[in-house]
Amino acid sequence: MKKIKTATSAIYMAIIFLFLYAPIFVLIVLSFNDSMSRTVWGGFTLQWYANLPFNDTIMDALFTTLRITICSSLLATVLGTSAAVGIHHMKKHHAAIMLGATNIPLLNADIVTGISLMLLFTRFTSLGEFSVVLAHITFSVPYVIFNVLPRLQSMSDSCFEAAMDLGASPAYAFYKVIWPELIPGVLSGFLMAVTMSLDDFTITYFTKGAGVNTLSTMLYTELRKGIQPELYALSTLLFLLAFVMLLIINFKSRNQEVKNEN
């Protein structure tokens, strides 16, 4: 009975993961496909990987994407972390208002967020890379706040007070006692911001100016011309990078656990 249950569970999870990873598998296969067609297998090749660095359209879009992602995630992390500390110390109803406002970009439809930001930017500044960064910060900060805030809430106030009690100034106490506890939350907030920024299409699409293209928007505009196979190579590389990072993080934290248990 129990065996049947375990087997059913395993099969079910296998189907779910097959569903989630099937397109990724297809794209990885396409990146080695020696044919311009998406549907015909023309043999194994590495030429798309070799050509990738010389494809200016893709490399431009890649660097634009990276610039936007790194700038917006870093700024969102700083803004969000300091906001989380501030909100944590606010009076209850002030904090509730701030959290309500923080929920707006998360709950609002992307298309509405994108359009409303576009209307604002066209009025006060021009559309371009800068406006995309502003837009990305706007939808990334909530992820940082909601990753940092729980860590603050789970920390007892008495650690901070204990540091003060032992002679630390408030700033020293924050740096030595609160900050080390916040780091995991800040990191996962940053990671979420990076992921959301990399994966965003809709908001970028509305807030970018002419001539600015991230990987997503470039793909969308060039759909009719057909996809350059170098893109498969690039996204396979990006995916592998993330995969390896995940393995390292997982391996490290498992080591940590083993160490703690001993």
């Binding site: 989630l20 990724i24 794209l27 990399l198 994966d199 997503s216």
Partner: peptide
């Protein structure tokens, strides 16, 4: 992470891959 990982493959490419699968 296992559920977020696919997002590192471009969203539009993944949808396009479904074209391949479903055509």
């Amino acid at each position: 992470f296992l559920f977020i990982l696919p997002m590192w493959m471009n969203f539009m490419l993944r949808i396009l891959a479904w074209q391949n699968i479903l055509s």
